[in-house]
Structures are given as C-alpha cells and as structure tokens.
Design a protein around this nucleic acid. Structure first.
Lengths: 156, 156
DNA sequence: CTGTTTTCTTGACTGAGTCAAGACAATGCC
DNA sequence: GGCATTGTCTTGACTCAGTCAAGAAAACAG
C-alpha cells in the first residue's frame, strides 16, 4: 500500500476521521467481515464508535470507492478493500468463510453472457459455493453431522 | 411440462395441498418473484393463505428440489421453478427485473475457479448486473435522474 | 369413516439495516 | 491559533424480511 488512508479518503472527497481510520484498519486486517464484526473490532481502537456509525462509514467508503460490499446469500453483507480489480469469491457453505479468487477466465470474458436479453451489463458477480479445507476435515472426522449452517461464523 | 405438480410433489415426498399448488401456479406465471408477491398473487386462488405459509411452502419446494431460491444483493429472495440446469441471472440495477441466461461459457467451465484455495466447489453462481432494456429507454428519456433504486419493483 | 401425521394459521420475535434530529469534530479562512 | 461552516457521528425509533412455536386444520393410510 503506497498511498495512505488519509490521502485516499481526501481524494474521494471524504473527511479524515477517527471512526473511518478505525474501520479501515479493521478491514486491512480482516479481508471479509460483516458490519457487526467491524464495529466490535473497531471499538478496540475507538471505543465510542456506534454500530450506526459503522454503517455510515462503510456506506461512505463504498461510495468513495475505497471499499466494496459483497452480499453472499443467507448472511449479512461483507466488506473488503480490494476494489477495482474484478475478482470473485469462494464461500464455504458450512462456516461462511470467504476467500478471493482472481477473475475466472482471464480478464473480462466472464463479463459477457451468451445472450444479454437487451440488458447493458456492467458487472459480473461470481460466487463459488463449496466447502473450505477446514470444514472438509471436520466433516470427515465427526462423520458429516456438523451442519452449523452459515450464519454467525464469518470472521474470515 | 409433462409431469403434473401433483406427481412432482408426491415424488419429493410432499403432500399435495392447496397452498402448494397455488404457489406453484404463481411461480409458473411469474418466473422470478419474492415471497411477498407470491403471497399476494396466490391469494387470488386461495384467499386464506398467510405470508408464513408461503415461507413454509417455499422452503418445502426448495427442499424438495421443485424450486430454487436466488438472493440478489440488496433485495429480498426470489424464487424460480427452473431447477437442475445450471443457468444464471441478469439483474437490472434500476428496477430489479431478473432474466435468465444460459450457462455462460458452455457447460461447466464456469464451475472451475482458477485457484480454489483448498475449497471443494459444488456450485458457481453468476449474477450479471446492468440495466434492462426498459430502464435504458427511461433513463435516456427523462435524462438519467430516475434512480428509484432496486427495492420494490421486482414483479418480474 | 377414523386416526395419524403433515401442513397451515396465527402471533410473537429476531437481526440487519435505514431514517431523522441533534451533538460533535474536521477542514478552510481570517 | 481562533472561528465559522459543513460534514460526520451519536442516540434512538423504526422498517422489512424472515424465523420460531403452539394450536387448528387438512391430507393420506387403513
């Protein structure tokens, strides 16, 4: 990371505030987290931060192009700092962990559906669903009964 | 459609009930609808159906493999009857309309990320975001100010 | 037709997120 | 550095989608 968060915020026309820097610091350490986890972690740096402030900050960051919001089905929205490169995600059905994948078939072909039905497409979102390495092990050990569903364990 | 809904339900081990048939009828007419719209439309056939019943029916149908649930970011879940063929979706950023797209690059390559990071992938979900034909027209006419956001107009 | 079991109805509840009003703090100017 | 102007944060009420639980009703088996 060359440019500082200060600069990036200012470039986006946003003021530099403690809550924003706190949220950015959390996102830097945890690549894919939900708003609630961010709030908890950010409180270590800036104790008085409120949940709503986190929503506000995240909306500002997403609006300013510093963060990206992803919404895997069946769970709360997650945020990440990797923006601008069109990459995709692997999501674990069991624990909800998210991993990045670089664009599937090279640069942009994944942006071109075979028949666009009159739509002007500007983004292709790809989510791969499966089982992460840890959950594969857990499943084969405990004898596939550990279905703790997605919700909850998204801490990445 | 060769087999009747009656048979399909029974094959899935589900009882044949009025609410279920009503929901199936609605889904047959409207390819991509949210639970609330289904409830409203189903009431035309079976007036006493409750919203919760719709949730229950949909869960049963999805569980039995008769319907599929999709959850586009920023809106409620939608349901469709096309199951078994791995097809994808085009979603309009403006009005939320959803259209089907057949699998992008042929059969299954879209199921293989370049690097799976130890995940065992069993499904690839692709969503193309853009503007539907109608909203393109509306935007060019009214002079791109008609941002009514997604929420609400999903009636497909 | 009767009994059993699934499914539907009714109602209370949760969790994620939004909206609005006022307090506070960051930038720009003197 | 001090002050005014905005933009941002805090607090609190609220919405919407969806879940959970208990009892009533309906579907299938005999």
């Amino acid at each position: 990371m060359e440019t500082t968060w200060d600069e990036q915020l200012r470039t986006a026309g946003l003021r530099v505030t403690r809550p924003r820097l706190a949220v950015l610091a959390v996102l830097e350490q945890h690549p894919h987290v939900d708003a609630d986890t961010i709030a908890t972690a950010a409180r270590a740096v800036h104790p008085s931060i409120s949940p709503q402030a986190v929503y506000g900050v995240l909306k500002a960051l997403v609006g300013g192009g510093l963060a990206r919001r992803i919404e895997p089905a069946g769970g709360p929205a997650l945020y990440e700092l990797r923006v601008g490169d069109n990459h995709h995600h692997l999501v674990c059905r069991e624990c909800g962990v998210v991993a990045d994948v670089d664009c599937v078939v090279g640069a942009a072909p994944c942006l071109t559906p075979s028949d666009a039905a009159g739509f002007v497409v500007d983004e292709a979102e790809v989510v791969f669903w499966g089982l992460c390495a840890d959950c594969q092990v857990a499943r084969s050990q405990h004898g596939y009964g550990t279905n703790s569903a997605i919700r909850g364990g998204v801490r990445a």
